[in-house]
């Protein structure tokens, strides 16, 4: 039996890659230039209606504990007082404030639970805002074994004073 062996010519079809590579490189350059390192941000949530609105909404009848934060003209913390107790402005002032808050909360509602206590931040006008954030950190909670624990969530500010 004879087989016919036909000659099959396979034409190699080449895809034109150049335009695709051009576009891909342009995309790459665009993304590289618009790339920025994203740092994680987070919030401290506070509910603070105006005094008149609070009266009509009947939000808080309890008297808040004032946290007085004093500053020099450059915005540096000079003293911090909670309920008549001074914490000074040393490197561990906020840590001592935190321990005081822990004691207050443990007495009030048990460890790690948010209480009905309320803190009112009474800050000097020039105080650098970073000190307020540190005070908020000391007041509102702590992290233990990677788990956040709440202390006092109800924080508000006094009206600004110059």
């Amino acid at each position: 039996m004879r087989f016919r062996h036909g000659i099959t010519t396979l034409d190699k079809i080449e895809m034109q890659m150049t335009p695709m590579i051009d576009i891909v490189f342009q995309l790459n350059i665009f993304f590289l230039l618009s790339f920025k390192i994203v740092l994680p941000e987070g919030d401290f949530n506070i509910r603070m209606p105006s005094a008149a609105a609070a009266r009509t909404m009947d939000i808080s009848e309890s008297i808040p504990t004032p946290l007085v934060m004093m500053a020099d003209e450059d915005g540096r913390l000079t003293d911090m007082r909670l309920g008549g107790r001074s914490f000074g402005n040393g490197p561990d002032a906020f840590l001592r404030l935190h321990h005081q808050i822990l004691d207050m909360v443990k007495d009030a509602g048990g460890p790690g639970t948010a209480t009905e206590l309320e803190i009112e931040l009474d800050c000097d006008y020039d105080l650098n805002y970073e000190h307020v954030m540190r005070a908020m950190t000391a007041i509102t909670g702590y992290i233990e074994n990677g788990q956040p624990h709440k202390l006092i969530e109800r924080v508000k500010f006094t009206p600004p004073r110059k």
Binding site: G42, R47, M48, F94, M133, T137
Partner: peptide
């Protein structure tokens, strides 16, 4: 008449209390 606020900070790996 806005009354809900979120004070934004940058997350830190270290304690800022000390």
């Amino acid at each position: 008449e806005f009354d809900t606020f979120a004070l934004r900070g940058q997350q830190s790996d270290r304690s800022t209390l000390v």
